[in-house]
């Protein structure tokens, strides 16, 4: 099964910060409110949280990509 990775579109991202609320295990915010993503693929246990974070992103900047 392909491993899903989180990606944030840096231009699309407007620092709403929902990703860090919904997926704190993989997303922390810098001092200006922009997400810093953990390296590596999304572990299976976090997959549904990751999908929720992607769906909740107000600007659709957060994406899950399988590679």
């Amino acid at each position: 099964m392909a491993a899903d990775r989180l990606k944030v579109g840096p231009i699309m991202c407007h620092a709403h910060g929902l990703c860090a609320e919904l997926l704190p295990e993989m997303v922390r915010l810098d001092e200006w409110g922009y997400p810093i993503l953990a390296d590596g693929p999304v572990p299976p246990v976090l997959r549904s949280d990751a999908r929720a974070a992607v769906a909740a992103c107000p600007t659709l900047a957060l994406r899950l990509r399988s590679d």
Binding site: H16, G17, L18, E21, L22, A56
Partner: peptide
């Protein structure tokens, strides 16, 4: 947003 009402709850 507040601590009791974070953005994702509002959403």
């Amino acid at each position: 947003a507040t601590t009791r009402w974070p953005r994702f709850t509002l959403h």
